[in-house]
Amino acid sequence: MSPATTLTPPANAVSGETASNGIAIDCKGVTKHYGSGSSRVTALRGIDLDVRFGELMMLVGPSGCGKTTLISVIAGILDRDEGQCKVFGVDFNTMSAGQKTSFRGANVGFVFQAFNLLPTLTAEENAAIPLMILGESRGSAIKRARDMLARVGLGDRGRSLPSQLSGGQQQRVAIARALVHNPRLIVCDEPTSALDHETGHKVMELMREIAVGPDRTLVIVTHDARIFEFADRIAKLDDGRVQSITSGKGVASGGAK
């Protein structure tokens, strides 16, 4: 898949550098602190991590280990304090707030633990939001959202409100929303923790099936060991550091296409 829309990187970005070596996300020495003075907490302590194109990377670890902070930095919704982190060759810290917002809109898809679907919008309207944010007309956006909902198996539920859908169906709508604008990076925060085992398994199967591709990178934060099998690689974090990076079953099963 090729990205539908990409933001022109800032002048100091090294676009293409990472693509040539197959690295989509390149983090070196990423540090992040919260608070100041005596209440200062260090969430990330010099994280080194790279994620390749076509790879499904899981960030795992106990609560408070920094995995959500790391995914927020990777997704460009949180600024790091030190170190370097390039996403598709672009360093968020060199961008203005507006540039970061535009970059996210065009290149990043989000799947949240609590789905975060707007309760008053239908499934197809929810799924169409990223396109509308990018300025696509409502009619066209809804049409593309409907197609994407069909791909996640909800072709007949486009006009349902989130409250009329099960948890698994809501998460599938959220996946459709994350994919509808064809982003290069998809970040997922505990995508299965609100779902039962069977539904969570189906959601992950769906993610592997339609979200993973040679031009796309998935980063999933989870502590749900039952879905580790879907990862290509698993980075285990603890106390703000990467403790280990191991291969998951995703590689063995041919997940990284």
Binding site: I77, S102, F103, V108, F110
Partner: peptide
């Protein structure tokens, strides 16, 4: 607020 946050994360600018 969470929905506004989600919209912001998904690329909705402050102007929007």
């Amino acid at each position: 607020l969470r929905h506004y946050g989600a919209l912001k994360a998904m690329g909705a600018g402050n102007g929007t």
